[in-house]
Write a protein that binds this DNA or RNA. Structure first.
Lengths: 340, 340
DNA sequence: ATATGACATGAGATCGATCTCACATGGCGA
DNA sequence: TCGCCATGTGAGATCGATCTCATGTCATAT
């Protein structure tokens, strides 16, 4: 069934040389006679020889594969990054193996284990938990190059590419405050997640610096899917004395909030003002369009890939912590609150 | 740098047996004494032994990896399928390597080549071209199990999972005709793509069966991205005697059409009725919500994975061509046309 | 008592590419 | 002329897991 495949041995035989010489000719190292080299090359492409990557990997200890473990590949944010990483890696003849952790630490551990067993060369990782990081630290200690994206973890020094979550959240809340809001709701995901922590901090810092008291009852927690966010939004806005504005920490939650508010008959921005973290295509489809804190998504993937490739090439420098700024994009989802 | 890693040899030494015996104990085949087996197991997990998949692959000729080549991983349709496939494969300890073809035949060839060089065990593929299929046929002939999804190609008999594109398109157009439309526009992607051909056929067949003449000037062609679709929509609706209704062949195009029409100040469904192929989250976010032809996306990935796994397990049956039905979901984007 | 077969184990080959080392050959300086 | 070095090539080891085959033990049947 499975075709035999041309091996180096076949090429060597065809060129009437030993395997060693054939290898030398094809990989151009050591001494090889000019004429011999030519004969080998010629034989190789006459037979359509293509090296067996698995065999090479066995010797070198590593496959030309990089593992990517995002929180959720269906999240457009990660899908975009995955795509960008892949393009960058292909330029260097590497493959990308995506294993989505579903924001589940246990699954994350398993996935890393199985990628490790595959002897992938390096990892690009968006850790699910900022604190439960023992497995990642071990991975790093075992010598695997790692680049963290979107999130970092404690106890680990390695290259990372993240955005200014605290600053972005602060800017969002400040914008709402500037528009006269004080009862500002926050819809966030699990506090295990690094970005959730930072964005919460930005929210709190901003309130504090404007002398607005922090009110626990304005915080809604949800998993990062549209469906969960709908429910969380409804819960949050069903309480008495509901928020006049809402800040959502990622685009799926923003979409969920949109649906939830609509189902409650609350109109934006008339009844509720809304600012979301992370821009998304659909933000401009709705009426009104949604004001967001945009992240430079298109830069994250390529940069992460480059950092990793440098490590794979043996670059030894101190860990690089890249942090991109965010940007407020004002559209139409914020208005001054009504007096009741 | 890279940790040495525990090999079978280490385990064997620790358990005081030969590598052969250790292998037998761990993989439970052949004869092994009970006590010996226990000793080996114990040694294995005391040392934290985990087989080297690359070495295993060298012997068996195949890595526990399946390649997935979708048209575009950023398209939510394929992202969803990729995710589902991955989940299914993991149950069988296989990894999924995603390599997006960007709807480019040349890139598709390269990707398949590089996956082949990696000795992946099988392929799940959404071919970019329905006719330029020589490379896929060769791949199949070389013995690689292949499952085609969403699209099939000529000259190749293999398992496939697609939807009833012709029927779906027909139903969409029929619904528009039933609402009094005759000038029905079609926004479709490159006719190289299988689904585009079938959906065009459905469109034409439906018109014909209702005695509506086919008018070339009602057809817009665009790449399958929101941005391109916006432009194509604008071009299509800038002509004199524009369509009163539009049928778009996938969700990204539907979104593009939405934006394009809005930018031209055309309201839905007042000025233009709209039906899209493929349901999408945002279809319910817009006002009005969009009427669509839904495909059973959640079934495609798992089924494709299952079919492939069966082949990998050695199942020999005639190629299975699965074709799912589609379903019209009526929402609010269609109305009767105005008299002008 | 001896043959037979079920059970148990290890030595060594194998997968394919690459690397080390040993062995040639020839040219050139001393 | 001898010796050394640059050049060219091949035999064999190696990576780690697995498989074949040979060898060795016992217990039971004859």
């Amino acid at each position: 069934m499975t075709q035999k495949g041309i091996t180096l041995k076949d090429v060597a035989a065809a060129a009437n040389v030993s395997r060693a010489t054939a290898a030398r000719a094809l990989n151009s190292y050591g001494y090889v006679g000019d004429e011999t080299a030519l004969r080998v090359m010629e034989a190789a492409d006459r037979l359509g020889y293509r090296g067996n990557l698995v065999a090479q990997a066995l010797r070198s200890g590593q496959l030309p594969i990089v593992g990517f473990v995002p929180g959720d590949i269906q999240n457009p944010f990660f899908a975009r990054i995955a795509h960008d990483i892949e393009v960058e890696l292909r330029k260097h003849r590497h493959n990308l193996l995506i294993a989505s952790s579903e924001e589940n630490v246990e699954l994350e551990k398993e996935l890393l284990d199985s990628l490790r067993a595959l002897s992938v060369r390096g990892f690009i990782l968006a850790p699910t938990s900022a604190t439960d990081s023992e497995h990642i630290v071990q991975l790093a200690r075992a010598g695997s190059p790692i680049v963290l994206i979107d999130r970092v973890v404690k106890d680990l020094q390695c290259d990372s590419v993240v955005v200014d979550n605290e600053g972005g959240a602060r800017e969002a809340v400040e914008y709402l405050v500037a528009n006269g809001h004080e009862r500002i709701g926050l819809l966030r995901d699990d506090s295990r997640i690094f970005t959730a922590q930072e964005r919460l901090a930005g929210y709190q810092n901003s309130l504090k610096s404007h002398g607005v008291a922090f009110d626990e009852s304005l915080i809604g927690v949800s998993r990062s899917t549209v469906e969960h966010a709908v429910e969380a939004t409804i819960r949050l806005f069903s309480r008495r004395n509901r928020p006049t504005a809402l800040f959502t920490v990622d685009s799926l939650m923003t979409q969920g909030a949109l649906l939830g508010l609509r189902s409650m008959g609350l109109s934006i921005p008339h009844d509720v003002s809304l600012v979301g973290f992370d821009d998304f295509n659909l933000a401009t489809f709705t009426d009104p369009q949604i004001t967001v804190i945009a992240q430079p998504i298109s830069e994250i993937g390529p940069l992460a890939a480059k950092l990793l490739l440098e490590r794979l090439a043996g670059k030894k420098v101190a860990p690089r912590d890249i942090r991109f700024p965010t940007r407020l994009i004002v559209r139409g989802s914020v208005a001054r609150p009504h007096r009741r």
